[in-house]
Design a protein around this nucleic acid. Sequence first.
DNA 1: AGCAGCACGGTACACCGTACGGAGATCGCG
DNA 2: CGCGATCTCCGTACGGTGTACCGTGCTGCT
Lengths: 260, 260
Amino acid sequence: MATEFTGTGDPARSMALLWRTGEEGGPRPGPRAGLDVDRVVSAAVRLADAEGLAALSMRRVAAELDVGTMSLYTHVPGKGELVDLMLDGVLGELYPDDEVPAGGGWRDRLEAVARANWQFFLRHPWAVHLATGRPPLGPGLMRKYELELRAVDGLGLDEVEMDLLVSLVNGFVRGSVGGVHERSDAERATGTTEQQWWAATEPYLARVFDAERFPTAARVGPVAGEELQAAYAPERTFEFGLARLLDGIGVLVGGRSGPG
Amino acid sequence: MATEFTGTGDPARSMALLWRTGEEGGPRPGPRAGLDVDRVVSAAVRLADAEGLAALSMRRVAAELDVGTMSLYTHVPGKGELVDLMLDGVLGELYPDDEVPAGGGWRDRLEAVARANWQFFLRHPWAVHLATGRPPLGPGLMRKYELELRAVDGLGLDEVEMDLLVSLVNGFVRGSVGGVHERSDAERATGTTEQQWWAATEPYLARVFDAERFPTAARVGPVAGEELQAAYAPERTFEFGLARLLDGIGVLVGGRSGPG
DNA sequence: AGCAGCACGGTACACCGTACGGAGATCGCG
DNA sequence: CGCGATCTCCGTACGGTGTACCGTGCTGCT
């Protein structure tokens, strides 16, 4: 499993690809292209969805398209840019009705943002592992940013607070969903299930664990383990965190726009 | 930059290494060992601290120790287990006074937990990128878990809530600190600074960005960008999120143990 | 017809983790 | 003391990665 970087290539080329502003006048000399950016990107997304970011290699993508490996480089500068294009592309799937689905309140809207992102990361596990320090500033991300900002607009917050709030919710979801995929990724990578791993590990832990040194852990660990090792545990963690987070945001928003 | 897995090896061997329970009676046949687990692990930590997880290879660690690559495998089963040992080892650095430093309230204590973890991830950037779905259940992690649970003990929460709360704060910090490192990692990987990247990208964004389609982003983006692209931006994001999170936890804790 | 310019892709290089097996040091035992 | 067992150390090799470089041959314009 690799954490890929976004924004590793020439910004001019990257932006041109993201916004599909490749100048193409009439027909040009050379053989008709059988391949194009979209075919490469969607093959890569299919592969990453199905087998994870670790399985995403230029050779595998090329094989999926029945094409030589180096042919990909005619359409995409390199793997970094390909990942940028993949991410911006799938971000466009969010909010199909072109708005954050919600009732009237900010809390409904932010909850909808969180749940939409949660579903998104479930569909595209590999997106969790992308470093977005230099995000792909393409149409997909721009649209997402716009729609999510609207969810916190008109609450009496200044621009910086709006941005921080959207980032806070997004960061929380990304972190929470990590827990889901770390389980399935680990199973794929090791070939053993969570239960098998725990069954193999627990006896050794019991042997070395000192309940006198760690009394609180001895009390909490088993209960929490029992409860949170179940299949629905990540959802549970997500719901708990989301409730706390929205409560906390409520303190800020409530204080800003008056009581109520 | 690679996201490594923890818990990829034989649990028995892993646990024995983590808790250093290697049975060694008297002297054994064979040459005196010049290398041992601790030397391997600390060299690996030094390397990862200095050059990042991407630079952490068995060949590099061996070179650092002036030793053949395969010699490492005498003391450590593989890279996965090495990473486990690295993580559990550095986790032991947390809370040097063997307690969460704090005033009397739960909020002080949880804030101290968050800040301690923040500093920890600053010291060991590579730890952010470790998937902890199957955590290394060694003495370092156990001690951390115990001390952090004590910070939320006695508040009228049940065991599952205590665990969820500690996880929530830890997850938040890990996500926040990611922003710091994604910047420096990107600079190291690409050789261009944040400013250079933005200067190169911004003109192209200005050309394709449609302010009528994205009015909120057009209003918020520039202000937030100006404010949050500064060097202290990640700290700012961290402080903002932490305040919201603690406020939200306050709603739960306050309601549970009575008003006030 | 000739040529410029393009899509395609084979080969090669430097890196990775690690399986395998050999060399040589050191101990307990007879 | 001699020897076999057992240990540490490590050279070599295999299959994987991203991609630089360059050749091949198709296509449309002149």
